[in-house]
Design a protein around this nucleic acid. Sequence first.
RNA 1: GCAGAAUUGGUGAAGGGGUUAACACGGUGGAUUGUGGUUCCAUUAUGCAAGGGUUCGAAUCCCUUAUUCUGCC
Length: 374
Amino acid sequence: MKKIKYELLKNEKNTKARLGLIHTNYGTVETPMFMPVGTQATVKTLSPEEIKDMNCGVILSNTYHLWLRPGEDIVMKAGGLHKFMNYDGPILTDSGGFQVFSLAKNKKKDITEEGVHFKSHLDGSKLLLTPEKSIEIQNKLDSDIAMSFDECPPASADYNYLKNSVERTLRWAKRGKDVFNNPNQSLFGIVQGGAYKDLRKFSAIETVKMDFDGYSIGGVANDGESKEDMYKAIDYSIPYLPEDKPRYLMGVGEPIDIIEGVIRGIDMFDCVLPTRLARHGNIFTRKGRINIRNLKFKEDFEPIDGTCDCYTCKHYTKAYLRHLIVANESFGARLLSIHNIRFLVKLTEDLRQAIKDDNLIEYKEQFIREYENK
RNA sequence: GCAGAAUUGGUGAAGGGGUUAACACGGUGGAUUGUGGUUCCAUUAUGCAAGGGUUCGAAUCCCUUAUUCUGCC
């Protein structure tokens, strides 16, 4: 097998949610799924074994970061990303579009038809990332799934800005696809268009015409975007995406957003939240988010969640975890990362079961009651 | 016993008569959605050893006491 293959198993009765499998060269994974982010060829603080123990289907890595350091040629010489980082599960690489977008200081001047001009965050050198370059790098990294290089607009962008970025993203998608040449790798297209119905529809239809191996919904969960706009972006895109290809909501996210995404027909999610929050002492629990630094946990010798099956909850108390985070010990970040990722992965396992049982709406309502009440 | 110097929050300290006592660390909350991992934001001394005085106004000047340090007999 060369490309990934999506296998639809079931549509949930009351929603647009679907159950599926993605077959890859590194194993078959179940969807809907959550993918932890390992920007620099590592999920920060975690080993590949720990990631596998959490039952993660896929992990992300990042084109921009690996391009700058250590360089895609090093990864290629190592035998590709899987060998380089000793991870034998499926890997998805983001195109670098999001990073470069946030590094481009002057959007009008720095984002050109050719690509995006920006300064390296490492040494300030002036660089240009183009659709072709992003795909070439990803071909060399040899991830299982590569992403098209898109123009990621700010949440505050107006209609005209979004219209232009949709059209440019289509041109960039084609340019990337034309140079794409790794037969073992799959390529996803990205739908843009903000919260506008006609733009999302146009973007989805035109992207699908190019026949990608999967489709992403991009431009969501950016700085200050409302949840309503995020849900609109999904609702306006999904009807035009083919049933036999996976759908990926980029950068999401919070437990509630994952549930809402699944209900709307999303198969794949990724987010930095579980690991970033972990490093700062924030923890997902069924009863809402908690900050382990809080004084009230100083003498709390219970696990975060007695019903959680993660390594952290099985072996450590809140008082100890609080101590580690307060003392800035890296083991604390690791233990909380394990819990937070496992929490989101377990959430998707629950959602898959709810799809099997045709009771997704009930599951959502129950989850929200617990999560928001405390 | 005499003389001199010092005493500012949990910590290190700035300020040498002008109103809300700088800054840093620490403490306590909060933020974080295709990761520029140790970040950001808010808050934290109604009070400057204690008491009294001068002054429109005192952490800043004066007096007494306490404590600490340094010299001398």
